[in-house]
Design a protein around this nucleic acid. Structure first.
Lengths: 361, 361
DNA sequence: GCCTTCCAGGCAAGAGCCCTACCTAGAATT
DNA sequence: AATTCTAGGTAGGGCTCTTGCCTGGAAGGC
């Protein structure tokens, strides 16, 4: 809330910001088009282009306005240069690692995949992560945004194990691992949080992830709430109604119903999907208890159900939710193709653009 | 995220904002002190004072720098005028209504109280509210901020009844009632939310209110999360552990233990405080179930316990919380004297200042 | 009692940024 | 070949801020 210092430099940096944002939106523009697009006068736009060219952020593409357009003088197209750099978006999941390099236009300019054995040992995960990063680090990224399929400590970016909750990837410190390959900040967050950020929805909704692990992201006023350590939404030990009506933790319901993978804390998805209507009803009731808590505490407009077995059991969950004292609409997640990576990619783009703008000041 | 238009007018309004904020902080300053305080040059500061004087926001107080200070020329003290106006902060609770008028310095310049009968009928509450507002409306306030001891619909500002939850004040539309007395926006929120905003604490904590009603405010990244309709934190029907270990709604625990007021949905506070250790243990366990849900969903650094019977039962609650899978520190609320009004007052001040600054633009 | 010191406030000059208005160059059309 | 039309450049002016200097008046020192 502290107001910026009033100075002419502020005005100039604002002009440059407008020009850069216009180029990010439209990829290439002449100086006259820039002036029309930003509402800035032609001389000022031209001067800004000159400054940005000098800084190496913008360059004449060599292209000229095509003759067909108008009959006047040909204009020179300007565009962002390679000097604006790229950002890394990385997804770490039990299935494997996917890393992408995104430029300031939002284009994915490179992509590296590393499948993982199941279950993978932490050192294998670390090796796959650094290998993927190395493959993309030809142009050193200015920052990285990482999605991980486990609880993430907000302060350190490390993956952490919570009591009794599935731990799918294991001990890992993505910040330390990526630092050699990234020339800037590394942001890490839970995959459910990223998927929620990517999901189109209202400003206040909850994203319930039901897969091998259980997770939940709460979007409030358009932002994902992370909590103190970043563990908000770790609902595995939320109290709910068990098969025998007693109060049990959500994850224990799957133990009682025999739906956990052998020698693991993870849920056996195939068995959940194949089970009897009675069991599905029990699962639905248990999930509805979690939804009741989400509704009471965060008052979402909508609960989005994602994950591998959530949408298939949507009807069972909805039937149980109908008995709750406060109604809330449910919906299956619309984004099904790499939702967490999509969220991380969008944030990487946002941060990259902010870094480019900020470097102007 | 849209950057402001780059213009010299922007710079000028920023200068005026700096001057106004300096005067809000220090009450009265000479032009030379203003320049030193804001970091702006003397001629610019003097020019800004001239503009603001012309707008009627600032005036020469007539005071001169006291001889004792320095030996140079005497300076003229400038201060905000009555033209900056006042804001109203109002608390609506079962005990009564308190309204305060706050000026841009944060001083309470007037206060009106109207006690209420228990239980009060909604029309009596409305009459008391308008009477209190009328008493303070000598200088028409520029805005009002209202705290109400019932769930508040975020969109309309109306008090609303939730199924099975205590409804202490009843149907009321503070926005409509105050509109004749206030020349600007009227903001309404739940008393627990206001108390949480006033409570000194970390950026991520939960405020659990345990009194006649049950409430909870979640502060995430320093802001109270309200949810879609403003009903986030209405925890009365959160699932928890009942006296017989079955899963029941939190408010029903008090029914099962015979701790609700006759013919009312409210909790009988005196009986809670006077009851046996066994009952206190049951209450503590039920509350710990709610805390478990709060921890799982919002990951607070700390849970602050407020309300009339919360702090006295802190030990019983803490004992039950110690058995939870995830630990969280508890603390009694530090602000005990009109905490909700304090929060509303702080917000009224904040909004009044923003209105004064914004009017400059 | 007079002189020096010190500071609030005002004035002048200058630099930076943006805008309007006009000019110029060069390609397409007539 | 003349005209039309548009991108880009130039000139001048207005606005805001800053630095540097001057002025007036009160307190303190001799």
């Amino acid at each position: 809330m502290v107001a910026a210092k009033p100075s002419l430099e502020l005005v100039r940096s604002l002009t440059d910001e407008h020009v850069l944002r216009a180029l990010m939106r439209h990829r290439r523009l002449t100086r006259a088009e820039l002036a029309a697009e930003t509402g800035i006068s032609k001389p000022t736009a031209g001067e800004s282009v000159r400054r940005l060219t000098e800084r190496g952020l913008v360059a004449d593409t060599g292209e000229r306005t095509p003759g067909g357009r108008g009959r006047g003088r040909v204009g020179s197209y300007y565009a962002l240069t390679a000097g604006t750099g790229v950002a890394l978006a990385v997804s770490i999941a039990p299935e494997g690692i996917v890393a992408e390099a995104v430029d300031a236009y939002g284009d994915t300019v490179a992509r590296a995949c590393r499948p993982l054995d199941r279950p993978a040992r932490p050192d294998q995960v670390a090796a796959a992560l650094t290998a993927a990063a190395a493959e993309l680090a030809t142009a050193t990224p200015r920052l990285a945004v990482v999605s991980a399929a486990d609880p993430v400590d907000r302060a350190t970016g490390r993956l952490i194990q919570l009591p009794d909750a599935p731990f799918l990837i294991g001990e890992l410190d993505p910040v330390a691992l990526l630092r050699p390959y990234v020339d800037g900040p590394v942001t890490v967050d839970n995959d459910v949080n990223w998927a929620a950020r990517a999901e189109p929805g209202p400003t206040d909704f909850a994203y319930l992830y039901l897969g091998e692990g259980l997770g939940c992201a709460v979007v409030s006023d358009g932002e994902v709430k992370q909590g103190r350590t970043g563990l908000a939404g770790e609902i595995a030990h939320l109290l709910t109604v068990g098969p025998d009506n007693s109060a049990v933790r959500l994850i224990e319901v799957f133990g009682q119903l025999g739906l956990r993978q052998p020698d693991s804390t993870a849920i056996d998805v195939d068995r959940v999907l194949a089970d009897s209507p009675t069991v599905r009803r029990s699962v639905g009731r248990a999930v509805s208890g979690a939804i009741a808590a989400i509704v009471a505490l965060t008052d979402p407009e909508l609960v989005v159900i994602g994950g591998s077995w959530g949408p298939p059991l949507l009807d069972d969950i909805a039937a149980a939710v109908a008995d709750l004292p406060r109604r809330v609409p449910l919906r299956a997640a619309t984004l099904t193709d790499e939702p967490a990576l999509a969220g991380a990619r969008a944030d990487a783009l946002h941060r990259l653009r902010a870094a480019i703008i900020g470097a102007t000041t």
